[in-house]
Computed example of a mutant assay.
Amino acid sequence: MNPSYAYESGDVISSDRVEGTTVYNEAGEKLGSIDDLMIDKRSGQVRYAVLEFGGFLGIGTDRYPLPWSVLKYDTTKDGYVVPISKSQLEGAPKYTETDVPVYDPDYGRRVNSYYGVTWLP
């Protein structure tokens, strides 16, 4: 089997399939879609899903790193659901596509703290 066709198998999924997946809040409102995944180099675990939110038709959008642990996949929506309102997201740590921050421990603590997630380096 060609690995490029193995997008889903059992409990794993290719990052190609995660990127572009819609993200909703618990009220069912579409917040945006997954733009990127940030993976811990040492453990191999996904740390953050970067949500693309705002703008119009992909222009002027910002990127919001969401701790991976806050995303829950909903098969009925074929997307991820997060316990975050649009107003809460608007005040969250964000960056533009061309101004990606360094994901160092201080930045990770700031992002995780905003969402009430315990930082585990």
Rank of each mutant, 00 (worst) to 15 (best):
S14H: 11
S15L: 10
S15Y: 12
E26R: 12
A27Q: 12
G28Q: 05
G28Y: 03
M38F: 15
I39W: 07
D40V: 06
R42F: 14
R42K: 15
R42D: 15
S43H: 08
G44K: 05
Q45K: 15
V46L: 08
V46T: 13
R47P: 02
Y48P: 00
A49C: 10
L51D: 01
F53T: 11
G54L: 05
L57P: 09
G58V: 09
I59V: 14
G60C: 08
T61P: 03
Y64H: 12
P65L: 02
P67S: 05
S69I: 11
S69Y: 04
S69T: 15
L71W: 06
K72H: 10
Y73P: 01
Y73I: 06
D74M: 06
D74C: 11
K77G: 04
Y80F: 15
V81M: 03
V82G: 00
V82R: 00
P83H: 09
S85V: 05
L89F: 04
E90H: 12
E90P: 00
G91Y: 13
A92F: 11
P93L: 03
K94W: 13
K94N: 14
Y95T: 01
T96Q: 15
E97Q: 14
T98W: 15
V100W: 09
V100Y: 09
D104A: 08
D104I: 09
P105S: 06
P105Y: 09
D106F: 03
D106P: 06
Y107M: 07
G108S: 10
G108K: 04
G108W: 01
R109I: 02
R109Y: 06
R110W: 08
V111F: 04
N112W: 03
Y114D: 03
